[in-house]
Every structure is written in C-alpha cells, then in structure tokens.
C-alpha cells in the first residue's frame, strides 16, 4: 500500500472517517446493516417518478433534510414522450457515479491528487428481448463498457490500479456483474 501521508492530498473524501467506520463495524457488525429504498409513482404512460429520502443504517432509521427525485420515461422511438432518461440509462449512470466515487476515495487513501475524472458508459441492449420476440435474447444489457479519462498526480499503472480497486469495491459493479435474489410482491 502506498499511503503517502506526507503529501497533502485533497479529493474531498474523508477517508479517515471511512477507516474509522471500518473499525467501528468490526466491533459491531450489526451497525453495518443498511437498507436503502426508493418510492416510485406512475404518472402516465412509461413516465414515473421516484422519491428517495429515508434509509436504515447504524441500527436506526434516517431522514434526510431533502427528498431527491429521479424520473424515468422512454424515448420517442418507443412511442413515448421522452420526458426523462430510461431506467437502463439510470442504471448506467449509477454505475458511472459509483465507480467515480470509488476512484476518488481510493485516490485519497493512496495519496493521489486527482485533477479530473471523466467517464463514458455504454450498454448494449437487443430490444427483441424486452419485446418478447426471442426467448434466447435477454432483456437486460448484453454488455456494458466504461471508459475513464483520469488526470492525476500518478503513474499510468497507479491510475489503472485506482480504476481496478474502485471496481473491486463498487456496489453497482457488484450489482451488475453478480446475481441478486429479487422478490417483487403485491401489498
């Protein structure tokens, strides 16, 4: 590990707090159990809106100061009104944000000053799957590509290691690459 504590690096990530949390969770693993949630309301057509606020963690419910909103719709080629991104685009955005946050956190921990982090995410979907035209074709992405451009005070290999370590610890990378049991019920 190349923790360079003699260098003052500020990527705006409080890694000391995160490392402190690791110590606390090792003592009390129950506190590390979090539940996140989003409430979605149908508006019209394929247009819907999510409200995101409360979550459970550290053994209790938390209310944020503000409620966030994420809307979703479909583009005109799917005969929709295109009022918001599609759900798969939101998933791609979530992956990019997750990896980007990870890059910043790992860079901070390793004493690497970032100047800019840009990324583009692409996901390929054969819509014959969604339309139920061919059972051999899945509904989801057949592949996802993420391309990073990073300017930082580090060697090429050190920057590659930031991106690799970020994937290793990323929730969204895990969610997209590994299976998850999903239960959908009617209230």
């Amino acid at each position: 590990m190349n923790v360079q504590s003699n260098v003052t690096v500020n990527n705006g990530v409080n890694t000391e707090a995160l490392i402190g949390a690791r110590g606390a969770f090792a003592e009390a693993p129950q506190a590390a159990q979090f539940t996140f949630r989003s409430s979605c309301s149908w508006i019209e057509g394929t247009y819907s809106a999510n409200k995101i606020n409360s979550y459970f963690g550290l053994g209790q419910e938390h209310e944020r100061k503000r409620t966030f909103s994420i809307e979703s719709d479909h583009p005109e080629v799917f005969a929709a009104a295109d009022r918001a991104p599609t759900p798969p685009e939101i998933a791609l955005a979530a992956l990019a944000s997750c990896l980007t946050g990870g890059v910043a956190a790992v860079a901070q921990h390793r004493g690497i000053q970032l100047r800019s982090v840009q990324s583009t995410v692409e996901g390929d979907i054969d819509v014959q799957g969604i339309l139920g035209m061919d059972p051999e074709i899945r509904s989801g992405f057949s592949s996802i590509r993420v391309s990073f451009e990073i300017d930082a005070d580090a060697s090429k290999d050190e920057i590659a290691a930031l991106v690799a370590q970020s994937q290793k610890r990323s929730a969204m990378f895990d969610i997209l690459t590994n299976p998850t049991n999903v239960n959908v019920s009617l209230a």
């Binding site: 590659a160 370590q165 990378f173 590994n178």
Partner: peptide, 15 residues
C-alpha cells in the same frame, strides 16, 4: 452463474 467481473479480476492480478 458466473460473475461478469472477470476482466477486472485479471486486471487487478496483472497490476
């Protein structure tokens, strides 16, 4: 079911 993260596992290993 196999993970889709193979490319990163090999990248980490090479690094």
């Amino acid at each position: 079911l196999f993970s889709g993260g193979l490319a990163n596992a090999t990248a980490l290993s090479d690094l």
